[in-house]
Design a binder for these strands. Structure first.
Lengths: 158, 158
DNA sequence: GTTGATACAGAAGTAAATGCTGCATTTTAG
DNA sequence: CTAAAATGCAGCATTTACTTCTGTATCAAC
């Protein structure tokens, strides 16, 4: 009895609120109310409820990676030496503490982890790769440098 | 002369503002001013400047993928048949219109595109994969289903 | 030393957020 | 089918926040 999404039904207005806040998360409540054709009070009631029910996990600014000197991205496939079960935990604990690692996913099919890196340059990549291959249990890695970001949705994690 | 980050220097307060808004993008300006030890007016001046200079690209709500029935994620490597140059454009135009495709990156090394999918189920995956392999120029694909999200930073695109 | 530019705090007017009351529509029970 | 209860909404009043302006301090250039 810890999760399994409650039987909460989102009506059309709730969907519009989520959609609007996903695209424009810092508009005022009255502005949001106008866009969803509601007055201010029921609008904020719905937003509070969506937050409490977990549909909205938080709000954040979308920063420019290139402006902040993190214009290079790369994916690294990592295969672990699976002789001991502790290897996975050790790898995870280590990788979350590498700031350049923007994402880390455990995947099924061929290798074990897929990492997404945000970097300032290829020199930075070399340094980070050195740290990753030295992590305990890392058997081999394969890097794919991003040449062009074709599509990037925002708002939903995972 | 189209990009190459302007010689704008971010001081400590700017960094704190970006950091604060990245984690909590819907706090009021006075609350933000308190956290960065500034009064309201210079605080909003800085935020406006950071927006105009492109450091802040926007604001958005972080929605719960599992609550919205999109708890499954997968990566798909796509290799194209590179006989014609138009193939790349055709593929990109088509893939951005598939809503399940959350990200699409053109990569160097081994294959051509890496796609990140957000899905409701494995049935949905089957349907989307069918659409992708039928796109013009697609030679082969390889899918890696995400078993566990180990790390996910937010705020910075790419 | 003077000028100019930048960054800040404080105050005033405006706008928004919050909480309350009442009304309308829908649900549930009888 | 009717009556009671619940839900969802708009409107209003109070509190709070936002916005713009003005004045002052700091720093750099001349």
């Amino acid at each position: 009895m810890t999760q399994t999404d409650k039987p909460r039904t989102l009506d059309r207005i709730d969907r519009t609120i989520l959609d609007t806040l996903q695209k424009d998360g810092r508009i005022s409540n009255v502005e949001l109310a106008k866009r969803v054709n509601l007055s201010a009070s029921p609008c904020i009631d719905r937003v509070r409820k969506l937050e409490q029910d977990g549909f909205i996990e938080g709000y954040g600014a979308k920063l420019s990676a290139s402006k902040l000197g993190l214009g290079t991205a790369a994916f690294i496939q990592v295969t672990l030496d699976r002789t001991t079960g502790a290897v996975f935990d050790q790898f995870r604990d280590a990788v979350v503490n590498i700031p350049e690692v923007a994402e880390c996913h455990m995947v099924a099919g061929g290798f074990d982890y897929l990492l997404k890196l945000r970097l300032s340059s290829m020199e930075a990549y070399r340094a980070v790769l050195g740290r990753i291959v030295d992590l305990p249990g890392v058997l081999q890695t394969h890097t794919y440098v991003v040449i062009e970001k074709v599509k990037q949705d925002s708002g939903l994690p995972v």
